[in-house]
């Protein structure tokens, strides 16, 4: 895929924060060498999943242009985003890429009527004129299952969390964007309301051709809505591929643990084994080898020494030594036989 075909393209994107403690400074790599792309001609929902502190939000903020990358390239519609002028960023980029935040009640002022946000966004970005703005906003609200009549004159406290979050999506839609970046849009909502939000993402993709980057730690809704899933761990994308592959048959041990940790609404499927939690989170960020090695049930000697590369065993990307054809299978078997090792054989084919 060349740069011109991609809607959004991240190339070896990294962000380093410096943490100062007294006189000493330490580096903290929040996003480490992330490469992914969203095609322009084929709208999709890309879910970014991972535990808290895995760099999901920093990644989103870089895509939104709120955080400047430390290294790597970020192209949107073929243009290098770090080189946009302030004016272009405001009138072109912010119109094309719209954010949706975690807590809708924090995103809207409680003292302002909700519709004012929709009007302001539509008029300021020039997607509607005074004459057409009502119809424009009503249409945006209709795509998320609301109408202007329902919210007109209302304040945030008069709406439920689900309605507020849908209004936030409608607000983002008033600029006719081509990409929505939704950072944990459902984590503040009841499980039963989540489906309404996730369903509206699906509708948006199908009916309006809007791509969505859906950042979440809720794997079940990610699987339900997303076309592709990127699993993040301590700044790395450790697995990236179609949702059916990544969550249907996870390859990376971390994805496997994530999948098995989703509480199934079925008491017959309770967990029987225990899970190891990260004890020292900061150490994992600066690990020399694989960042998951200390917690991985299949860790080998090589894992704590050498960082794995991005491997493509069966059409998806996996960052794990277990799927490296250069590492002898005997070692992997010793480390643990439970992981399906078949993809190693198909590496040559792909």
């Amino acid at each position: 895929m060349t740069t011109s075909e991609a809607l959004l393209k991240l190339e070896q994107l990294s962000r380093v924060f410096t943490v100062r403690r007294g006189l000493a400074t330490s580096r903290f790599v929040a996003v480490d060498d992330v490469t992914l792309a969203i095609a322009a001609d084929r709208p999709e929902i890309l879910a970014v999943v991972g535990e808290s502190g895995s760099g999901k939000t920093t990644l989103a903020r870089m895509i939104l242009g709120q955080v400047v990358p430390s290294a790597g390239h970020l192209h949107f519609k073929g243009r290098d985003m770090t080189r946009l002028s302030a004016r272009e960023r405001r009138i072109w980029f912010m119109k094309e890429v719209q954010p949706i935040f975690q807590d809708p009640f924090a995103a809207f002022s409680p003292l302002k009527k909700i519709e004012s946000y929709l009007y302001e966004t539509a008029l300021n970005f020039g997607t509607a004129t005074r004459a057409t703005v009502d119809a424009h906003i009503d249409q945006a609200l209709h795509t998320v299952g609301l109408s202007l009549k329902e919210i007109k004159g209302r304040y945030p406290n008069e709406l439920s969390g689900g309605q507020m979050q849908r209004t936030a999506i409608a607000r983002a839609l008033t600029t006719n964007p081509s990409l929505l970046v939704a950072d944990e849009p459902v984590s503040m909502l009841d499980a039963s309301l989540r489906m309404a939000i996730v369903n509206s993402f699906r509708d948006l993709k199908q009916q309006q051709g809007v791509s969505v980057i859906y950042i979440t730690h809720d794997l079940a809704t990610a699987y339900y809505a997303a076309d592709r899933i990127a699993v993040m761990l301590r700044g790395w994308v450790v697995e990236l591929g179609p949702a059916e592959q990544v969550l249907g048959n996870p390859l990376h041990p971390y994805t496997q643990i994530l999948k098995s940790s989703v509480p199934e609404p079925d008491p017959r499927m309770r967990w029987t084994e225990k899970v190891a939690l990260a004890r020292q989170e900061l150490d994992e960020f600066s690990a020399t080898g694989c960042k998951f090695a200390t917690r991985c049930p299949f860790a080998m000697d090589v894992c704590s020494r050498v960082a794995p590369t991005n491997l493509v065993p069966d059409g998806r990307m996996v960052k794990c030594h277990l799927y490296d054809p250069a590492i002898p299978a005997a070692q992997k078997h010793r480390a643990g036989g439970a992981i399906p090792l078949t993809p190693v054989a198909s590496t040559k084919a792909s």
């Binding site: 499980a191 489906m195 996730v198 369903n199 809704t221 699987y223 249907g248």
Partner: peptide
């Protein structure tokens, strides 16, 4: 109404 992994059938709230 809860979505499940391995089941993408339409769910409504």
């Amino acid at each position: 109404s809860l979505p499940k992994i391995d089941d993408r059938s339409e769910r409504v709230s």
